[in-house]
Amino acid sequence: MIKTENNKAWFLVLPVFALVAFSAIIPLMTVVNYSVQDVFDAHTRYFVGTEWFTKMLNDPALQSALLKQFGFSFTILLIEVPLGIGIALLMPKRGWSASLCLVLVSLPLLIPLNVVGTIWQIFTRGDIGLMGWTLREMGVSYNISRNAVDAWATIILMDVWHWTPLIALLCYSGLRAIPEAYYQAARIDRASRWAVFRHIQLPKLTNVLIIGVLLRFMDSFMIYAEPFVLTGGGPGSSTTFLSQWLTTMAVGQFDLGPAAAFSLIYFLIILAVSWVFYTAIMNSQKEK
Protein backbone atom coordinates (compact mmCIF):
# COMPACT_ATOMS: atom_id res chain seq x y z
CA MET A 1 0.00 0.00 0.00
CA ILE A 2 1.23 3.49 -0.79
CA LYS A 3 1.14 5.49 2.40
CA THR A 4 0.57 9.23 2.46
CA GLU A 5 2.99 11.43 4.28
CA ASN A 6 1.14 12.97 7.22
CA ASN A 7 2.74 13.98 10.48
CA LYS A 8 -0.67 14.55 12.07
CA ALA A 9 -0.82 10.74 12.35
CA TRP A 10 1.34 11.26 15.41
CA PHE A 11 -1.78 12.30 17.31
CA LEU A 12 -3.24 8.83 16.75
CA VAL A 13 -0.08 7.20 18.06
CA LEU A 14 0.31 9.55 21.02
CA PRO A 15 -1.85 7.58 23.51
CA VAL A 16 0.10 4.40 22.81
CA PHE A 17 3.35 6.27 23.11
CA ALA A 18 2.39 7.84 26.46
CA LEU A 19 1.08 4.60 27.91
CA VAL A 20 4.05 2.47 26.92
CA ALA A 21 6.61 5.15 27.70
CA PHE A 22 5.30 5.43 31.25
CA SER A 23 5.84 1.72 31.91
CA ALA A 24 8.94 1.32 29.79
CA ILE A 25 11.17 4.37 29.93
CA ILE A 26 10.98 5.20 33.65
CA PRO A 27 11.82 1.64 34.79
CA LEU A 28 14.53 1.35 32.12
CA MET A 29 16.17 4.57 33.34
CA THR A 30 16.01 3.26 36.89
CA VAL A 31 17.69 0.01 35.86
CA VAL A 32 20.48 1.97 34.17
CA ASN A 33 20.88 4.03 37.34
CA TYR A 34 21.09 0.90 39.47
CA SER A 35 23.70 -0.62 37.20
CA VAL A 36 26.39 1.95 37.97
CA GLN A 37 25.91 2.02 41.74
CA ASP A 38 26.04 -0.10 44.82
CA VAL A 39 22.55 0.51 46.17
CA PHE A 40 21.52 -0.22 49.75
CA ASP A 41 18.54 2.11 49.79
CA ALA A 42 17.53 5.39 48.15
CA HIS A 43 19.97 7.38 50.33
CA THR A 44 22.80 4.96 50.99
CA ARG A 45 24.40 4.27 47.66
CA TYR A 46 27.83 4.49 46.06
CA PHE A 47 28.85 5.20 42.52
CA VAL A 48 30.94 2.32 41.18
CA GLY A 49 31.10 3.11 37.46
CA THR A 50 31.34 0.14 35.16
CA GLU A 51 32.52 -2.31 37.80
CA TRP A 52 29.33 -4.42 37.78
CA PHE A 53 29.47 -4.80 34.03
CA THR A 54 33.05 -6.07 34.20
CA LYS A 55 32.11 -8.46 36.96
CA MET A 56 28.99 -9.79 35.29
CA LEU A 57 30.62 -10.29 31.88
CA ASN A 58 33.36 -12.35 33.52
CA ASP A 59 31.15 -14.38 35.85
CA PRO A 60 31.43 -18.03 34.76
CA ALA A 61 28.06 -18.98 36.30
CA LEU A 62 26.25 -16.35 34.30
CA GLN A 63 28.19 -17.16 31.14
CA SER A 64 27.12 -20.76 31.39
CA ALA A 65 23.52 -19.70 32.16
CA LEU A 66 23.61 -17.59 29.01
CA LEU A 67 24.90 -20.47 26.91
CA LYS A 68 22.27 -22.78 28.37
CA GLN A 69 19.64 -20.19 27.55
CA PHE A 70 20.71 -20.06 23.90
CA GLY A 71 20.83 -23.86 23.81
CA PHE A 72 17.33 -24.03 25.21
CA SER A 73 15.86 -21.45 22.83
CA PHE A 74 17.35 -23.11 19.76
CA THR A 75 16.33 -26.60 20.85
CA ILE A 76 12.70 -25.70 21.37
CA LEU A 77 12.58 -23.74 18.10
CA LEU A 78 14.05 -26.75 16.25
CA ILE A 79 11.35 -29.00 17.67
CA GLU A 80 8.37 -26.65 17.76
CA VAL A 81 8.61 -25.17 14.27
CA PRO A 82 8.61 -28.43 12.24
CA LEU A 83 6.12 -30.03 14.61
CA GLY A 84 3.82 -27.01 14.44
CA ILE A 85 3.92 -26.99 10.63
CA GLY A 86 3.18 -30.72 10.62
CA ILE A 87 0.18 -30.37 12.93
CA ALA A 88 -1.17 -27.46 10.89
CA LEU A 89 -0.99 -29.59 7.71
CA LEU A 90 -2.82 -32.44 9.43
CA MET A 91 -5.65 -30.40 10.93
CA PRO A 92 -9.03 -30.80 9.19
CA LYS A 93 -10.01 -27.80 7.11
CA ARG A 94 -13.77 -27.55 7.66
CA GLY A 95 -16.72 -28.90 9.55
CA TRP A 96 -17.20 -29.53 13.24
CA SER A 97 -13.94 -31.48 13.48
CA ALA A 98 -12.00 -28.36 12.45
CA SER A 99 -13.55 -26.32 15.28
CA LEU A 100 -13.00 -29.08 17.79
CA CYS A 101 -9.40 -29.48 16.71
CA LEU A 102 -8.76 -25.73 17.02
CA VAL A 103 -10.19 -25.60 20.52
CA LEU A 104 -8.28 -28.68 21.71
CA VAL A 105 -4.99 -27.65 20.14
CA SER A 106 -5.12 -24.12 21.57
CA LEU A 107 -5.98 -25.31 25.05
CA PRO A 108 -2.41 -25.28 26.46
CA LEU A 109 -1.86 -21.68 25.31
CA LEU A 110 -4.41 -20.29 27.73
CA ILE A 111 -3.17 -21.93 30.91
CA PRO A 112 -1.31 -19.60 33.31
CA LEU A 113 2.45 -20.18 33.26
CA ASN A 114 2.75 -21.43 36.81
CA VAL A 115 -0.25 -23.72 36.37
CA VAL A 116 1.57 -25.24 33.40
CA GLY A 117 4.49 -25.83 35.74
CA THR A 118 2.17 -27.37 38.33
CA ILE A 119 0.50 -29.64 35.77
CA TRP A 120 3.86 -31.02 34.70
CA GLN A 121 5.18 -31.23 38.21
CA ILE A 122 2.24 -33.45 39.14
CA PHE A 123 2.31 -35.36 35.86
CA THR A 124 5.98 -36.33 36.17
CA ARG A 125 6.04 -37.33 39.83
CA GLY A 126 6.91 -40.95 40.38
CA ASP A 127 4.24 -41.50 43.03
CA ILE A 128 1.16 -39.58 41.90
CA GLY A 129 1.87 -38.60 38.28
CA LEU A 130 0.82 -40.61 35.27
CA MET A 131 4.04 -40.12 33.29
CA GLY A 132 6.44 -40.52 36.18
CA TRP A 133 4.56 -43.58 37.44
CA THR A 134 4.37 -45.21 34.00
CA LEU A 135 8.09 -44.70 33.41
CA ARG A 136 8.87 -46.14 36.83
CA GLU A 137 6.67 -49.17 36.23
CA MET A 138 8.45 -49.72 32.93
CA GLY A 139 11.73 -49.76 34.79
CA VAL A 140 13.09 -46.47 33.45
CA SER A 141 14.97 -44.51 36.06
CA TYR A 142 13.50 -41.06 35.84
CA ASN A 143 13.70 -38.37 38.48
CA ILE A 144 13.60 -34.70 37.67
CA SER A 145 14.76 -33.58 41.08
CA ARG A 146 17.93 -35.71 41.01
CA ASN A 147 18.92 -36.14 37.39
CA ALA A 148 19.78 -33.00 35.39
CA VAL A 149 19.20 -34.71 32.03
CA ASP A 150 15.70 -35.77 33.07
CA ALA A 151 14.97 -32.27 34.29
CA TRP A 152 16.14 -30.76 31.01
CA ALA A 153 14.20 -33.22 28.89
CA THR A 154 11.06 -32.54 30.91
CA ILE A 155 11.36 -28.77 30.60
CA ILE A 156 11.79 -29.08 26.85
CA LEU A 157 8.83 -31.46 26.65
CA MET A 158 6.77 -29.04 28.71
CA ASP A 159 7.67 -26.10 26.49
CA VAL A 160 6.87 -28.12 23.37
CA TRP A 161 3.54 -29.08 24.93
CA HIS A 162 2.74 -25.49 25.85
CA TRP A 163 3.89 -23.55 22.80
CA THR A 164 3.80 -25.78 19.70
CA PRO A 165 0.08 -24.89 19.43
CA LEU A 166 1.03 -21.26 18.80
CA ILE A 167 3.12 -22.20 15.75
CA ALA A 168 0.43 -24.67 14.66
CA LEU A 169 -2.35 -22.05 14.87
CA LEU A 170 -0.35 -19.43 12.99
CA CYS A 171 0.50 -21.94 10.25
CA TYR A 172 -3.06 -23.24 10.12
CA SER A 173 -4.46 -19.83 9.33
CA GLY A 174 -1.62 -19.20 6.90
CA LEU A 175 -2.60 -22.37 5.05
CA ARG A 176 -6.26 -21.39 5.06
CA ALA A 177 -5.38 -18.25 3.15
CA ILE A 178 -4.17 -20.24 0.12
CA PRO A 179 -6.84 -20.17 -2.63
CA GLU A 180 -8.22 -23.54 -3.71
CA ALA A 181 -7.24 -22.74 -7.32
CA TYR A 182 -3.55 -23.21 -6.46
CA TYR A 183 -4.17 -26.78 -5.37
CA GLN A 184 -6.26 -27.50 -8.47
CA ALA A 185 -3.46 -26.26 -10.69
CA ALA A 186 -1.05 -28.51 -8.80
CA ARG A 187 -3.35 -31.50 -9.30
CA ILE A 188 -3.50 -30.86 -13.02
CA ASP A 189 0.31 -30.75 -13.11
CA ARG A 190 0.36 -33.98 -11.09
CA ALA A 191 2.62 -32.33 -8.56
CA SER A 192 3.79 -34.59 -5.73
CA ARG A 193 2.72 -33.97 -2.13
CA TRP A 194 6.23 -32.67 -1.40
CA ALA A 195 6.21 -30.33 -4.39
CA VAL A 196 2.89 -28.87 -3.25
CA PHE A 197 4.35 -28.27 0.20
CA ARG A 198 7.63 -26.87 -1.07
CA HIS A 199 6.30 -24.55 -3.77
CA ILE A 200 2.77 -23.63 -2.67
CA GLN A 201 2.41 -24.02 1.07
CA LEU A 202 5.84 -23.15 2.45
CA PRO A 203 6.15 -19.77 0.68
CA LYS A 204 2.76 -18.77 2.12
CA LEU A 205 3.94 -19.78 5.56
CA THR A 206 7.18 -17.78 5.57
CA ASN A 207 5.66 -14.62 7.02
CA VAL A 208 3.67 -16.25 9.78
CA LEU A 209 6.65 -18.41 10.61
CA ILE A 210 8.92 -15.41 11.07
CA ILE A 211 6.34 -13.92 13.42
CA GLY A 212 6.03 -17.22 15.28
CA VAL A 213 9.77 -17.68 15.58
CA LEU A 214 10.22 -14.11 16.78
CA LEU A 215 7.53 -14.46 19.46
CA ARG A 216 8.86 -17.83 20.56
CA PHE A 217 12.45 -16.62 20.68
CA MET A 218 11.60 -13.57 22.77
CA ASP A 219 9.42 -15.51 25.19
CA SER A 220 11.65 -18.57 25.55
CA PHE A 221 14.62 -16.33 26.24
CA MET A 222 12.73 -14.92 29.21
CA ILE A 223 11.28 -18.21 30.44
CA TYR A 224 10.75 -18.04 34.19
CA ALA A 225 7.64 -19.36 35.92
CA GLU A 226 7.36 -22.76 34.25
CA PRO A 227 10.78 -24.25 35.09
CA PHE A 228 10.74 -22.45 38.41
CA VAL A 229 7.60 -24.28 39.48
CA LEU A 230 8.63 -27.57 37.89
CA THR A 231 12.20 -27.94 39.11
CA GLY A 232 12.97 -24.83 41.17
CA GLY A 233 16.07 -24.45 39.00
CA GLY A 234 17.56 -27.72 40.13
CA PRO A 235 18.99 -30.23 40.49
CA GLY A 236 21.85 -27.96 41.55
CA SER A 237 21.59 -25.04 39.15
CA SER A 238 21.27 -27.16 36.03
CA THR A 239 17.91 -25.72 34.99
CA THR A 240 18.33 -22.22 36.42
CA PHE A 241 17.51 -19.90 33.54
CA LEU A 242 18.59 -16.28 33.18
CA SER A 243 15.34 -14.79 34.46
CA GLN A 244 15.58 -16.84 37.58
CA TRP A 245 19.19 -15.75 38.20
CA LEU A 246 18.08 -12.16 37.85
CA THR A 247 15.05 -12.45 40.08
CA THR A 248 17.02 -14.18 42.80
CA MET A 249 19.76 -11.56 42.55
CA ALA A 250 17.46 -8.52 42.51
CA VAL A 251 14.57 -9.56 44.74
CA GLY A 252 16.08 -12.32 46.83
CA GLN A 253 19.50 -10.92 47.69
CA PHE A 254 18.74 -7.27 46.84
CA ASP A 255 21.97 -7.08 44.78
CA LEU A 256 20.44 -4.39 42.61
CA GLY A 257 23.64 -3.19 40.93
CA PRO A 258 24.86 -6.49 39.49
CA ALA A 259 21.31 -7.61 38.67
CA ALA A 260 20.69 -4.38 36.77
CA ALA A 261 24.01 -4.58 34.92
CA PHE A 262 23.24 -8.12 33.90
CA SER A 263 19.67 -7.25 32.87
CA LEU A 264 21.00 -4.61 30.54
CA ILE A 265 23.42 -7.08 28.91
CA TYR A 266 20.53 -9.53 28.61
CA PHE A 267 18.27 -6.89 27.07
CA LEU A 268 20.94 -5.87 24.55
CA ILE A 269 21.27 -9.49 23.41
CA ILE A 270 17.52 -9.91 22.87
CA LEU A 271 17.37 -6.51 21.20
CA ALA A 272 20.13 -7.36 18.70
CA VAL A 273 18.75 -10.78 17.78
CA SER A 274 15.21 -9.46 17.45
CA TRP A 275 16.35 -6.52 15.35
CA VAL A 276 17.95 -8.90 12.87
CA PHE A 277 14.73 -10.95 12.69
CA TYR A 278 12.59 -7.83 12.38
CA THR A 279 14.71 -6.36 9.60
CA ALA A 280 14.46 -9.70 7.83
CA ILE A 281 10.63 -9.57 8.00
CA MET A 282 10.49 -6.02 6.74
CA ASN A 283 12.89 -6.66 3.86
CA SER A 284 11.06 -9.82 2.82
CA GLN A 285 7.79 -7.88 2.75
CA LYS A 286 9.32 -5.06 0.79
CA GLU A 287 10.41 -7.43 -1.94
CA LYS A 288 6.83 -8.60 -2.54
Binding site: N33, Y34, F47
Partner: peptide, 10 residues
Protein backbone atom coordinates in the same frame (compact mmCIF):
# COMPACT_ATOMS: atom_id res chain seq x y z
CA UNK B 1 11.70 10.58 42.35
CA UNK B 2 14.40 9.64 44.83
CA UNK B 3 13.72 5.94 44.28
CA UNK B 4 15.07 6.33 40.76
CA UNK B 5 18.53 6.82 42.34
CA UNK B 6 19.80 9.27 39.71
CA UNK B 7 23.51 9.87 39.28
CA UNK B 8 25.19 12.63 37.31
CA UNK B 9 26.71 10.36 34.59
CA UNK B 10 23.44 8.51 33.89
Amino acid sequence: MSWMVWTLPT
